[in-house]
Write a protein that binds this DNA or RNA. Sequence first.
DNA 1: TTGGAGTGATTTTTT
DNA 2: ATCACTCCAA
Length: 993
Amino acid sequence: MSPPAATNDIFKSLNEAQSRAVRSNADTVAILAGPGSGKTHTLTSRVVYLVDTLGYQPQDVIVATFTVKAAREMTERIGKALGQGREKKIILGTFHSVARRYLAAYGQRIGLNQKFGIADDGDSRGIISRICKRLQLTVDPPMARAWISKKKAKGTEPEPNGKKQAPAKGVHVQELETCYKEYQSHLERSNLLDYDDLLVRCVELLTKHPSCVSNVQAVLIDEYQDTNGVQYELMKLFAQARHRITIVGDPDQSIYGWRSAEIRNLWRLLRDFPGTEEVSLEENYRSSQSILDMSLTVIQQDTKRYKKALRPIHNKGTRPVLRRLKTSAMEADWVVSEIRRAIMMSGEMMTHNDIAILLRSASLSRHIEHALGKAGVAYKMVGGFKFYERMEIKVLLDYLRVVHQPENNDALARIMNVPKRGIGDVTIKALVEEAEKSSTSLFSLLDKHCCGGRQAKTRITKQAEQKISADLLRLLKGIRKRVDEISQGTPFGLIEMIEQLLTQLKFQKFLQDTYADDHEQRWANVQEFMGLAADFIRDLDRIGDDGLPEIEGLQQSKEVDVLPKFLSQIALASDTLKDDETQQNKAMVTISTIHAAKGLEWPIVFVPAAYTGSIPHARAEDNDEERRLLYVAMTRAQALLYLSCPLYGSHGNGEKQELSSFLTPIERYFAKKGPCFDRPVMSEVARILQRSLPSEDSIYKSMPPMSVVEDDLFPEDPEQAIREVRKAGGAVEGGYQESYRAKRPRLYGPAGETAPQEEPWRKDYATTMEQTSSFTVSTLPGFVSAGTAQAALAAAAASAKAKQPAQNAMKTSANKRPPDQRSIMGFVKSAPGQTSTSSNPPTAPVPAHSAMSNMQYLPPKLAARATAYAPPRPAIEPSLSKHRLAATKMARPVLPKREEADFASKQYNCFSSSPTKPPGDENPSAIAQSTLSEENEPPPEPTRPAGSFHNTTCNMPKGLGGGFRRPAGLGRESIAPMDRLRKPFKPLTMNRP
DNA sequence: TTGGAGTGATTTTTT
DNA sequence: ATCACTCCAA
């Protein structure tokens, strides 16, 4: 079979290294690469290659991703390339969903009830806290939960250093064990599996019954750095028939350590599959060079990490911004103003779709949402509050869950009194207790009590309640009956079922009564839920089942019911909705947690709240992971990157907040305010995004009169601004209102008139703000000039004290590695050129606190073994393995081969300046920013020693010019599909003039 | 024993 | 500002 067109297209879109990875004949392929290097594209291409060129059957390929979003995107991409709907046959999904599929089909072999349900987060939390209460355990339930989860997620392999999981001090392991046991038995009784159980039980299944995966020819894993112990085992088990595994990952983007992700899995793989071929992808197709440089200065603060080459394909670009604002409310307003400015100054080359605001925690979104809403900017929130967590939805889901699994006591207990039935907490608790003691389900207890020979010895049940219970039971039974009838025939009825629930519960009325003010919104949510169910049904037909291929001689249970599928889909995917339908054509800003943003990219990225306590999170255990998180956030940006930090906390009377400790050492490398969007800057942005910039004329014409052209609405140095105000006699307390005053003192007339007690002034001002949301506040001339004056003052002061490079942070040199500590891959396979990459900027200081790391290092013994399997490349120069300790001294690394090195360095030169760029305007953005930063060091430009090039690079195609095609799927259209609308019913009007 | 009002802590990240 | 929990009146 000659390769169809699809394959050729795929190969055209690959660069040399990517193509090598795609076509590798090795059984095990490990692709390690930095952000924006086309990892996922490579992985999908390999899938296409395996199926299309090598003729693997799609159903014999397993692709496991980490998030639902990634899974969906991958299906889409593969589908596009493969066509004929063959992508549907691939066993593709998150680890959890693939595991669920196997358990649904074969779980009975390990004694699993086929109708098992999935205990979501809330369920397990509830169960555990009830256990703790009941048994009067002293452990804190969340902590017990974490302990249990870790225990499950770790898998069976013992820790290398023999250390045991250490519970927090002072906690009795005995209690934890008890809780664990109790929890498991509760789950079992309710026929539930929690998230970890899905994996654990699947491991059990595949260990005992390898035939279930006897068909599997290849296993591919995305975001490998985030796999945990069980997932590793699962991966191996999936691949047990043929041992063909392809992984892609980036240790620098390992941000799920808290969920027991183990970077150790990387060397486990190399240990268990000695023939593994490594490929590294080194070109970054995503971000401007300066964004990449800046991100590197962050990630390189971790001296223990494994360094990879990462070479920008794009131009220098605009210097990233680190803005300081007074409060988080002001910060949010500033973000909005920058969003407007950027869009306006780009002449709509960029829209709201091109913008993301990435947050460390979802709870930080409040101010941002407020500001966006105030300004009438459409946005959507990814992650954070979950649709399914909303009361009204959760209730419906619980009803459905009880219909599916009558023995699910927790769900039943929750809904017993939900349209008020006059059953109080006490009664419910007693009933649950009784049910548990007599080891029946709550449902059958109630059933017997009401209908049968009234056996419930529960002390108190009024007759009124009894009748209402009958109503509840009748409803549930009625629906169950229908389900039973339906499941024999067409897989319809889900919608019907929900409708019936709604009418019989008088749900709308219930919402009206319970939530007086926002019942409309809630009802709308319910309707969206219906729409979601409808989509699900439709996709079931279109996408086909998520069943497994028939294996000869193996009986599998077919899932005929839609309900369980629907429920587990929801449990496993906090966001099931396809955006195709929901997507209004409105451009929307994306707000997302950093975690949820992994793998995505946007032209403009804001990272607000970059203060210590947020980005190294106050409760974080692993500072290095927090740093990686910041790195991930920064590397999402293509053209413009904005970080910001409020000086005062928004909570309470705002204590002072410190800039993120990851940023203080490099603060001076950032621009202090947003760039001037002049022609050179904008055209460079356009080049990075590969879009065409509207003519200067048309931009100018479309600009509303008196628009804000510069980022000067807010003082560059709020503290300075505060001092100014104070000098002028104003009271400074550090609050929201106050901040505005400090910002534009002139508004309030001559000095002294700023006294906060002047209520009328303030009120007026505030209302004006609200009403004029369609234009920026600053369109009033007075505002602008005052602001500008302030900014000028602030700038002067700022540059005076700019030279404080946080030397104190460098003091500790506790970061020296023990001599035997090496970076993972560099140690495992001591290939030349794979070691150093971009060298440190000699000045990049290292924060003192980076001593802890979750990186695991290969024990010498294993290392020796692994090295033995390394392909016959020249051994590494011993000095190089420790090169990082001597990084500052190392002017020139040892070169593997001279010619190659020269070639590579030429290549690099070629990368770093665009061929189309006239030699003259080397760095427009630098010029644009020069007023801000002329005294400062330029951002540390990593010098990339030629010898650091991986040999992949040296093998680059001879045709030097044509070699650097941007892989397809990395272009504009590849901006990852937006996630589903979180707040669909907010006022979403854009009212830009 | 239920339900409403009032009070008090509280927010990492995800399958 | 939102949720969970306590307290008090039916």
